[in-house]
Amino acid sequence: MERVVDIETEGLFLAVHRGFLTVSAGGEEKGRVALDDIGALIVHAHGTAWSNSVMVRLSERAVPIVVCGSNHAPVACVWPIEGHYAQAARMRAQLAAGRPLGKQIWRRIVSAKVRMQGTIFAARGGEAGAFDLLARKVRSGDPDNIEAQAARRYWRALFGADFSRDRSAGGANALLNYGYTVLRAVVSRSVCATGLHPTIGIFHSNRNNAFALSDDLMEPYRPLVDQMVLELLDEGHVEVTGDVKRRLATLTTLDLQNPDGTVSPLSVQVQRFVHSVATCFETGRIDLALPGSPLRAEAAVSEPG
């Protein structure tokens, strides 16, 4: 499986040597990872230094380099100019896609996200019926803002009545920030590798957001991060430590059901989903490979009692 490499220690130097990303401190090599095994590079330590070859070699492999702020949320991401062989054609199709098509894609994304929220809620002992009902009510473009209605019910039920999602806060919010950073990197890589432009979103359109499409396409997977954060909180983890980061990085290996009944790790399922979005832009037909339930959530729901 592709590895998420996280740099959190100050004073490290990153370089490339014979197909490996090397990590050194004080002139002494501390570790190395094969470039072809890297799925994303996430940098938290502000004292990190690197050679230009790190940017070049990872970009050649469509590997996103994510730079994070003190709240563990991404502040920058390096996106490769050259990627998929059909990049130019797909970007033209993406730009030419009509608003009705985008609104239909967004309807499917929101519906899938709400259903996934219900799955996670049910795995925690709740009743998912309300989420299934809301998911069926989503219309083209979500004019009724079903996404927000589901979110209000979801956050209170899972994280407590006093919880408020705040990117600048610590505790559970900081853990969520980091988990979403991992997810955003995974989705961004697939966007780049598929030949789509990450700035041209379907729903998110903030002109300051260079990864609007990534933010759109990661929505159905967000509840999976929430599930992992809840498990960490249950175990008493309230800070983004090295152990917490390693746990959240395993998100990429989480097994998900595919529409055809097969099972794939999240990193592979994301690739299929993003490719299906590109195909929608090219053909004008809605046929999305949206994620199904995580296997461990299904197992939790089916357990007696």
Rank of each mutant, 00 (worst) to 15 (best):
R136F: 07
K137N: 11
K137W: 04
V138N: 09
V138G: 05
S140H: 09
D144P: 02
D144T: 09
D144L: 14
E147Q: 13
E147N: 09
A148M: 09
A148T: 10
Q149P: 01
A151D: 04
A151Y: 11
A151N: 10
A151I: 03
R152V: 14
R152S: 14
R153I: 11
Y154W: 07
W155I: 07
W155L: 11
R156W: 02
A157E: 13
L158M: 15
F159R: 05
G160F: 11
G160S: 11
A161S: 15
A161L: 11
D162P: 03
F163M: 08
R165E: 03
D166E: 08
R167Q: 08
R167Y: 10
S168I: 02
G170Q: 08
G170D: 09
G170N: 04
G170V: 03
G171E: 03
G171T: 04
G171N: 03
A172M: 05
N173S: 11
A174N: 07
L175F: 04
L175M: 14
L176A: 01
Y178S: 09
Y178D: 05
Y180M: 06
T181H: 01
T181N: 01
V182C: 04
V186W: 00
V187H: 13
V187F: 07
S190I: 03
S190M: 14
S190Y: 03
V191Y: 04
V191N: 01
V191T: 06
A193G: 10
A193D: 09
A193Y: 10
T194Q: 15
T194W: 06
T194M: 15
T194A: 15
L196N: 09
H197S: 12
H197P: 08
H197T: 05
H197M: 14
G201H: 01
F203I: 00
H204R: 14
S205D: 15
N206Q: 08
N206V: 04
N206A: 13
R207G: 00
R207A: 03
R207C: 03
N208G: 14
N208D: 11
N209I: 02
A212S: 15
A212Q: 08
D215C: 01
L217C: 10
L217I: 12
L217Y: 06
M218H: 00
E219V: 04
P220E: 14
P220T: 12
P220D: 10
P220Q: 14
Y221T: 02
R222L: 04
R222T: 06
P223C: 13
L224I: 15
L224R: 04
L224W: 07
V225R: 03
D226Y: 00
Q227T: 01
M228F: 04
V229K: 00
L230R: 12
L230T: 10
L233R: 15
L233N: 08
E235G: 13
E235A: 14
G236Y: 06
G236P: 13
V238R: 15
V238T: 15
E239K: 10
T241N: 02
T241I: 07
T241H: 03
G242S: 12
K245E: 05
K245Q: 08
K245W: 05
K245I: 06
R246I: 01
R246P: 00
R247F: 15
R247Y: 15
A249W: 07
L251P: 02
T252Q: 12
